[in-house]
Simulated assay, not measured.
Amino acid sequence: MRLEFTKMHGLGNDFVVIDGIRQNVRLDEPTLRHLADRHFGIGCDQILLVEPPGDPAQALFRYRIFNADGSEVEQCGNGARCFARFVREQGLTEAREIPVETLGGRIVLHVEDDEQVRVDMGRPEFAPARIPLLAEAEADAYTLDVQGHSITLGAVSMGNPHAVILVDDVASAPVHEIGPIIERHASFPRRVNVGFAALRDRGHVDLRVFERGVGETLACGSGAAAAMAVLRRRGLVDDNLEATLPGGTLVLSWTGQAEAPVWLTGPATTVFNGWIDL
Rank of each mutant, 00 (worst) to 15 (best):
G154L: 03
V214A: 12
P30T: 05
F15M: 07
V167F: 02
L252A: 05
G235H: 09
V111R: 00
V119C: 03
H185Y: 02
Q116E: 15
Q257Y: 10
A243Q: 03
L11S: 11
G91N: 11
G154H: 01
G20P: 11
M8S: 05
N240L: 12
N67I: 11
H39G: 08
V50R: 07
N67G: 10
F126I: 10
G213M: 14
E51Q: 13
P267H: 11
F188H: 04
V164F: 02
F15I: 13
A68F: 04
G43W: 00
E177D: 13
I276K: 02
L207K: 05
I65E: 02
S187H: 13
R232G: 10
V87F: 06
V100C: 07
T217P: 06
M228F: 06
R81W: 07
D169M: 02
R190I: 14
L49Q: 07
N193W: 03
A141Y: 03
L32W: 07
E94G: 15
V25F: 12
G247C: 12
R191L: 05
R200H: 10
A268G: 06
I178P: 00
I276L: 15
N13F: 07
L35Q: 07
A198M: 02
D37G: 13
V251Y: 14
V251D: 13
H110C: 04
C82R: 01
V209E: 02
G154R: 00
E51V: 11
A226M: 08
T249G: 08
C82L: 10
M1G: 12
E259I: 06
D114K: 03
G20W: 05
